[in-house]
Structures are given as C-alpha cells and as structure tokens.
C-alpha cells in the first residue's frame, strides 16, 4: 500500500534521510521510531507529498507521489490519505463540527444532510458529540487529538498517517490515543504509518517497527523482533539509556 524506495533528503549540508526504504502492506501498520530530529516527520511529509525527496520514489496505492508534478495530481493521491498531526492541526476559526466536516466540504459532492449525519456518526464513535459546538481552544489536547482523528477518518481513507500520537499528553490520555488508533483500525481497516519516539508504547499499534538513525533504517521487524534485537542502538533507545551509540544532541 505504501512503498518508500531508496529515499534521500538533505537540508543544506545535513543529510536527513540517506536511502530509506519501507514497505507497508495493505491493512497493516508500521511504526517508524527513532530519537528526535532523525527525520521521522520529514519522512511523513515526503509521503504526503508536501516535501519533495532529493532522490527515490514513494508509492501510495501504486501511485507515485514523487513524480506527480502538479498539485492536482498530488491531490488525487492525497485523497486516499488521512493524517493525524502531532498537534492535531485543527483550524482555530472553525468549531469542532466544522473541523470534522472540513474534508467532506472541501471535496464537495456530499449533500449537507448526509454530511451532517456522517459527522455526527464519526463524532459519536469517538465520543466527541458533547464538544461539536466548541472551538478547538476550548477543549483539552486529548480531545483535540480525537477531533484530529475524526477529521482524518471522515473520508474513510485507505491510509492513516499518524505523527507523534501522544505528544503533550499525560500517560492516560496517551494510552487513550493508542486505544483509539486500535479501535479505529478495527472499525475502518486502514493501512497505518505511525511516527513516534515512544517505545515500547507504540508497539501496541504496530504490526512492524522500523527504527531510523543517522538517516538510515538501522532495524526493522515485528515488535517482538525489536524487543529481542541485539542492536545496541535499538536496546539503548528501548531502555532509554543515555550511554550507547546514540549520542544526545
């Protein structure tokens, strides 16, 4: 479903991604993990087609987003994506109802009655009904994440991209977001890519895990494989130690 092939990206002299390749099968979820600043979010932006790689190709559902030159061609591919941003990225000037309805309105073709009932259904399944008339700044970050999830899922995307799902959340709210991802995956059955630095928590929403360090994938496998990995960087990151091959910058 998602195929990242030999992708390179640099900013000035800094090489961020140095030949990264990842394949995610339809209906499966992969977590891309690694310390802060190793290019996880850059990878996500490349997959969304918001950034262009220096080299390499990215396929979403068989369509190459890196060679789609115009925004309209990229938009066709983006229609199969739902994205939950790190800060939820809700529109401040819109109510929660309008935030959830936004992708439907933007795409058009859906009458307002059907749209209203769809928003209410998704809001209900994510326990957001009491907040529909509120503005994003009036609710907690945990609820904002749920709204972000509702907005991402309202168009029933084939692929869900999640950037740092529990940044800024306490452990309970963080766990709630993971439960939400699992529940939504069961209900909607999307292919998932989760970017995170939270190990081992992110294992619970992943079929496979890939760890990025120094611009390369240094380890990849199932959560069990990662836990059992003898790679010292993986072990250092899993155990949250400061001593080891990963240098704190």
């Amino acid at each position: 479903m998602i195929s990242v092939r030999n992708v390179y990206k640099h900013f000035g002299p800094q090489v961020v991604l140095d030949g990264v390749s990842i394949d995610i099968e339809p209906g499966k979820s992969t977590a891309v993990v690694g310390p802060s600043g190793v290019g996880k979010s850059v990878l996500l932006k490349l997959i969304m087609g918001i950034m262009q790689p220096d080299a390499g190709e990215i396929y979403i559902g068989g369509e190459n987003i890196t060679t789609a030159r115009s925004e309209s061609k990229k938009n066709k591919i983006r229609r199969s994506l739902g994205v939950l941003f790190q800060s939820a990225a809700l529109f401040d000037s819109l109510t929660i109802f309008d935030n959830i309805a936004f992708p439907l309105r933007a795409r058009g073709g859906s009458n307002s009655l059907r749209m209203h009932s769809k928003v209410c259904d998704v809001a209900d399944s994510l326990s957001l009904t009491p907040y529909l008339r509120n503005y994003p700044e009036e609710v907690s970050i945990g609820i904002r994440k749920r709204v972000g999830m509702a907005r991402a899922l309202i168009t029933e995307p084939k692929v869900l991209l999640v950037d740092e799902p529990n940044t800024g959340l306490d452990p309970l709210d963080g766990q709630e977001v993971y439960d939400l991802i699992n529940a939504c995956k069961t209900q909607w059955g999307f292919t998932g890519l989760v970017i995170s630095h939270e190990l081992p928590e992110v294992f619970q929403v992943s079929d496979r895990v890939a760890m990025i360090l120094g611009g390369k994938i240094i380890a990849e496998g199932s959560p069990a494989d990662m836990t059992a990995s003898i790679n010292p960087a993986v072990q250092q990151f899993l155990n949250g130690r400061t001593d080891g091959p990963i240098k704190i910058q």
Binding site: M48, N75, S87, A106
Partner: peptide, 22 residues
C-alpha cells in the same frame, strides 16, 4: 504565519485542499 507553524497549512494540503486557493 500561525497556521503555517501549527501545521494547519500542511493539514490543508494533506486533505487535498490548495492553500493558495483556500
């Protein structure tokens, strides 16, 4: 500017909405 730094413009693009138009 605030929409840019809070990823709202990226969110628009991810939803296939052209920020130039919107």
């Amino acid at each position: 500017g605030i929409m840019r730094i809070t990823e709202q413009i990226d969110a628009l693009r991810s939803m296939a909405v052209d920020p130039m138009k919107y």
